[in-house]
């Protein structure tokens, strides 16, 4: 945005780093934000799993959903950067 940076040696890094943050993969992050906040999915007793009502095992299972999503987004957005270095 401001003046002399394009000529400076670090400019390419900066330009690439901007691209780093933008990725369609980032939209995936909405899934583990929205899904755990819908009570209709988890607010019930059956089916039970190891004695846990659905309310408890399903909400614990969403931890996996969150971990998987952030890991996928991290790995997919990291590759681009790997090429840049």
């Amino acid at each position: 945005m401001t003046a002399p940076d394009p000529e400076a040696p670090e400019a390419p890094t900066a330009a690439r780093s901007r691209a780093k943050d933008r990725s369609p993969w980032n939209w995936l992050l909405f899934i583990p934000i929205v899904v755990p906040l819908i009570p209709a999915f988890f607010n019930g007793d059956s089916p039970r799993l190891f004695g846990f009502p659905r309310f408890y095992w399903l909400q614990l299972a969403w931890i996996l959903l969150g971990v998987t999503t952030t890991t996928v987004v991290y790995q997919m957005t990291k590759k681009k950067r790997g090429g840049g270095r």
Partner: peptide, 10 residues
Amino acid sequence: VPYTIVIYPM
């Protein structure tokens, strides 16, 4: 639990 799940992607 949902609180500490949604925080990280957010």
